[in-house]
Amino acid sequence: MLIGFDLLDRQILDADGEPVGKVDDVEIEDGTVVALLSGQQALGERIGGRIGRWIAATARRMSEPPDQPPARIPVDLIAEVTSAVTLSVRRELLVDPPLETWLRDHLIARIPGARDES
């Protein structure tokens, strides 16, 4: 498997097929991938340059509590790699994306109808 071609930038899905994030970066130890890094912080650091640094800094400030390292998913949680990376766990067990939580609590959940199926 080519990391750059078959793994990086793929969609990560949980055991129920719900989106968790992208493979924004990987953690490598002794030549093998040990964990997937996901979230805008890992993405920003990988993109680099002024825009990348800005994305990463914003994500770092959003995290709860601030200045957390990027969300890390150990490879033994991966069930299958196809056109997406499917995990063997449900996303409730993973770290909640801070931006999603913040927008849900401060904006979206306060609008009538946010809890209803459309």
Partner: peptide
């Protein structure tokens, strides 16, 4: 692009970034 939850098949509160 970012790999977030999206779409009208989810309740809005489950796709907060998308609806924002």
């Amino acid at each position: 692009y970012f790999g977030w939850n999206w779409g009208k098949l989810r309740k809005p509160r489950d796709a907060a970034r998308f609806h924002t």
